[in-house]
Design a protein around this nucleic acid. Sequence first.
DNA 1: TCTGGGGTCCTAGGACCC
DNA 2: TCTGGGGTCCTAGGACCC
Length: 438
Amino acid sequence: MKNKIFLFGEWLPMSYIQYTKKLALVDCNSFYVSCERLFNPKIRKKPVVVLSNNDGCIVSRSTEAKALGIKMGEPYFKAKDIIIKNDVQVFSSNYSLYGDLSRRVMRTLKRFNSDIEVYSIDEAFMDLSNFSDNEVEQVGREIRETVLKWTGIPTSIGIAKTKTLSKVANHIAKKKQSGVTSLIGIENLDPILEKIDINDVWGVGRQMTKFYQKNGIYNAKQLKNKSNTWIKKSSNVLSSRTAMELRGVPCIDLEKTESKRKSCVVSRSFGKRIEKFQELEEAVASYCLNASEKIRSENLVAKAVMVFVRTSPFQKQFGFYSNSRTVDFPIATNNSIEIVKNALSVLKVIFRKGHRYQKAGVMLTGLTDAENNENLFSSAKDERINRLMRSIDNTNYRYGRSTLSLASAGVRKSWSMKRDYNSKIDTADFYCLPTIRA
DNA sequence: TCTGGGGTCCTAGGACCC
DNA sequence: TCTGGGGTCCTAGGACCC
């Protein structure tokens, strides 16, 4: 319990009594849509949506699209009528573009303060504690303007004493012209928290919303004023942390150093339903190649691989089938060949003939540093395999993914996902540079 | 006809041990 | 025939996030 102090019936970080923090949450507005707009001025004022993988769901909406009543996460086919009627511009997601623009935004933020936590592709927490209470909102505005000028991406910024409150502030900032809201220096936050629906509080999801509402808690103020004992007893520590944070007591620290991940998932829905074992085998093999390349690039090894397959949960008339199986490796590995071999061997076990498979995936678990993986059985053979993997990775990096692959991953890939509305912009690909003719 | 993908953390319950 | 209690570790499943 070093670095912690017992306060309000809870172990809290020592930092709480040392000084009060000022945390900013910077959130890119309709991030994927903003990325597409950057390279396509014609859609600046139009309603725009970006679809998830396989063109399945709507995952990003412009303000105009939101105003039309298109909902977040809604299946594309259900929104199609509104989309056609209102000439909504539709894009398949283009993750290499979004990833690249995200890095530009984060680099810009680091110019203001290197103490940032990159929380997701479009969000970062920043520590602005070294600015005074009255300065902080103006600093937020400067950050916002700079990001807009340097990257073209509009953001909203919320500033408060805790992460959960800065989420609240950000929620308010989203609706403001200036795009910046600071709750620093406000004595009584109750009138503000009262207007925040309980399901809009960070950390309160669908299940907890139902539970809270059943107990008469409909907004953030009511949760804040509920006793911690009751919350902890009827839920768990995470919920009581949320309540503490609403009270202005920081319980969730800024994570400045990005920690190594513990698992790596590659999974996809298929462009069409699959019934043949061989096609499933190809898909699982290529997901394995993908995942093992990813962990090699982060210098990790996996203790086990899990394989899963399933049919569509929405088409009950065919009967739902879902199954998974895990294999442990005798020695942690990142060798593609070994990972594929093991994954395919358990795929045989969970495959049932006669199903229309909709999705499959692999998960590498128990990831640890490759350096610490030396053991009694390491041999010259391992070194040869490592060299082979390195040269495959280098080739694929230079000439494009899956230039070098395994035969088991298939060549035709008839199962691969749909991307009918790709904008074909790739800021990380030389061949996508626009050409100018003289 | 068509419904995403990739993470983390917590908890309950079982296996196992003494 | 009667069959303890407490600890640890692991896993699966659920809840949350974006």
